[in-house]
Amino acid sequence: MNFWEYLGSRHQQLLTDAYQHASAVFQCMVVATVIGVLIGVATYRSDWAGSVATTATSTILTIPSLAMIGLLIPIVGLGVAPTVVALTLYGLLPIVRNSIVGLRGVDSTLVDAARGIGMSRTAQLLRVELPLAWPPILTGIRVATQMLMGIAAIAAFASGPGLGNEIFRGIASLGSKNALNQVLAGTLGIVVLALLFDAAYVLIGRLTIPRGIRA
């Protein structure tokens, strides 16, 4: 069976895996974005808290993903839970870092002006600082998503959902006639998903970055 025949015969399973893969990454990204931006907002004003936040999230990134999932299994069990926790933690780093950098990068005279015309602290943040910091934050989200696409494949190790299952099945049966096809299908699927997500981010950028600050 060549690769195309393989795809033809297994497309049902592949599509389900791809959908679950994308869905896991998407949901974890939403959670990571909310938590990451909140951490950024809570810490960017203080030198000390800002560096603690970035160091903590960088440390998470140095843990190999396989090890991380392995460590999580005894705590949260098998299946979806370790996948979600691991993906969210990994996704945090670029988002927290870019939120802090972006919020700190807002021109201080603009913050001064916002205060000067009578904006409350919340209004300053929501109407001025976050919109101006949004382009770097969005970049962080984009980088995080691409990273999670790969890491999500490892989730199959903990019986998680997604295209990783295809790859792991292939690796487990190396030498059999479909092994290579399975690995190839899983990998290509992830690449295609990553490209689709990236295209979506370009679109989101167009729609959400105000025209006045678009490059």
Binding site: T109, L110, A113, G116, I117, G118, P131, L132, G212
Partner: peptide, 22 residues
């Protein structure tokens, strides 16, 4: 102070306009 500032106009060097607003 927030209420106070709404009753006092404030203009600064290099205008301080918010670039993301018209």
């Amino acid at each position: 102070s927030v209420k106070l500032r709404r009753k006092i106009g404030y203009a600064i060097q290099s205008s301080g306009l918010f670039p993301h607003m018209t």
